[in-house]
Amino acid sequence: MIQSLLSVEDLSISFASEIKSLNTVNEVSFKAADQDFLGIVGESGCGKTLTALAIMKLLPSNAISSGRILFEGKDILAYKDKDLQKIRGSKISMIFQEPMTSLNPVFTVGNQIAEVLITHQSMSAKEAINKTIELLKVVQIPSPELRVNDYPHQMSGGMRQRVMIAMAVACKPSLLIADEPTTALDVTIQAQILELLGSLQERNRMSLLFITHDLGIVAEYASRVMVMYAGRIVEKSPVQDMFINPRHPYTIGLLESLPGKKGAKLKPIPGQVPNTESLPSGCKFRTRCRYVIEECHLKEPSLKPAGNSEHLSRCIRAMEL
């Protein structure tokens, strides 16, 4: 088998509190090949962002992670800080959810982009600024020669997210993690940003790990999807397959709660994501599942092929759905 760009194996993340430790991410495994577009979908608090931060090794200091994260064949969790700093921003980059707070308020955006170039590609300040203007053009910021001297507060949310993207792709990383990059933006701007990310992915031949709670985005752009619930992967499959044949009740619930035909009522998933401190026994979704049977209470089902070998589901009734 060809070595994949990123391979996450049995990643678990827990937080030790004084009373007990909380498992927030549980045995998550997935792979991303070169030029992959992988979507991670789930509700707030299901461990999407933590998984992403773990790949950058930027978890809060009280988090304990186990498992392996292989990037280009080497385990990131075993890297030293110095080596990590070389990789971050140059080979793996990340875009955050909140463009309003992700830029340093006291520096011009040009300065901040140039800093990445100077750090990783040892450019001179002048080269870096020229390259920065070029990058701003790539992310479609009008009159980049002027905007390069703007401070973040002089820009709109969409513009700032473009700046973040420019910064993230400045060194042509092979993996870009986008953590809900469009959640804080207007719908019209969302579409533009997605379009931009899609075109950059093709142009730079990078792999994109796209975290979102919007299945619509995933349907349109991603090639493979992973659905997470309560820190676990509950379904993993190529994108079309998942939309045609969802094999997990949670995925079905998410699909049904998408706005569809005009006038059709939305069907929300009843209940709330259970608190990490008090997860139910057996299947973690059983409290909200309408297909629940006696067996669901006993043992947590494992992630098994459902239908074909590419399509995995964590449900004992996967084939009946």
């Binding site: 930027l58 921003g89 990340m94 955050f96 707070t101 830029l103 973040m164």
Partner: peptide, 10 residues
């Protein structure tokens, strides 16, 4: 967040 972002940029 911008500190986390700066770390993510290396």
């Amino acid at each position: 967040e911008f500190i986390l972002a700066a770390k993510a940029m290396g």
